[in-house]
């Protein structure tokens, strides 16, 4: 950045503009319906295909830093699962912080959907070790997860009925802010043929497009925009849809800032070369 440009637009001006771009649409309110792309639809359609009462595994692999982006996604997926009367099993490979967060989010959603613990859903413990626990779960569930998050034997939970190994789940969704979808693709899908979909932060989404074209991942819900699309699919506008106006304004502001930066750069360069 040229010193002249540096003087013209200080960093704090950019921060101020972004702060306004975030807060004004939030204060004004409103929500935008975002039609779903085929990639987001890929997760929705697989869940739609599951017969009533089927188990579904959700790997909740994010911690509080990504809660704002991934909570709406989890809510929409859980709403869809319980609307389809599926048995939801939630676990985590991310960090010791991810299961307490998952517990909080799932319990809140369960209360809203009148889902009962043990019957309609179950929470498992955090498992460290990357692909290793997935490989073990593929052989025997009880080998490393004999008890749930609250120390109840999984055999006593109706939600876990018929689950002896990973592939007893007809479908799983990994919602992640870290690279755990890699583990699920490598060990769950490639090794055991586990059918899976995923949701992740927007910044991670491009990393997983190759697995969609190879059909190893049925669909991908990317960031808040993906969550808003999923909310539109389940006809339940929520947190993501209400944040879409803000995201639109911030993205347009960023584009304008980049254009302004370029114009100012070339103007100062031209001025410099003329002198």
């Amino acid at each position: 950045m040229s010193p002249e440009l540096k003087k013209m637009i200080p960093r704090w001006t950019v921060f101020g503009i972004i702060a306004l771009a975030v807060t004004i649409p939030l204060v004004v309110g409103g929500s935008t319906r975002f039609p779903a792309t085929p990639i987001v639809r890929g997760v929705y359609e697989e869940i739609e295909k599951l017969p009533e009462g089927s188990p579904i595994l959700i790997s909740s692999d994010f911690d509080p830093g990504s809660e704002a982006e991934l909570e709406p996604m989890m809510n929409a997926i859980l709403a869809h699962c319980w609307r389809r009367k599926l048995r939801v099993v939630v676990m985590s490979l991310c960090s010791a912080n991810s299961m307490p967060l998952a517990e909080e989010l799932v319990k809140k959603a369960a209360a809203e959907h009148k889902a009962e613990y043990g019957r309609d859903y179950a929470l498992m413990k955090f498992l460290p070790g990357g692909t290793a626990p997935i490989l073990t779960l593929g052989q025997s569930w009880s080998a490393i997860l004999p008890k749930d998050y609250y120390e109840t034997p999984v055999a006593d939970l109706p939600a876990m009925k018929g689950i002896t190994k990973l592939t007893d789940f007809p479908y799983m969704v990994c919602v992640a802010s870290v690279a755990t979808p890699d583990y699920w693709i490598l060990a769950g899908n490639a090794k055991y043929g586990l059918k899976m979909g995923m949701g992740c932060t927007a910044v991670m989404a491009t990393d997983y497009y190759p697995y969609i074209s190879t059909k190893q991942v049925s669909g991908l819900i990317g960031g808040l925009a993906g969550a808003a699309q999923y909310e539109a699919l389940v006809e339940r506008p929520g947190l993501a849809s209400s944040k879409m106006p803000t995201q639109s304004v911030v993205h347009v502001t960023l584009v304008l800032l980049i254009l302004a930066g370029n114009i100012l750069h070339f103007l100062t360069k031209k001025k410099g070369s003329a002198a």
Partner: peptide, 30 residues
């Protein structure tokens, strides 16, 4: 966890947006 870790993690992640905007404005040149 609820009132320190949760909030501080979210704050750190939010601040990132401002720095990305500033970096994009200052460095994204044709």
């Amino acid at each position: 966890y609820q009132y320190v870790m949760n909030e501080m993690s979210a704050t750190m992640f939010s601040i990132l947006g401002f720095f990305i905007a500033s970096a994009a404005f200052r460095a994204f040149r044709a």
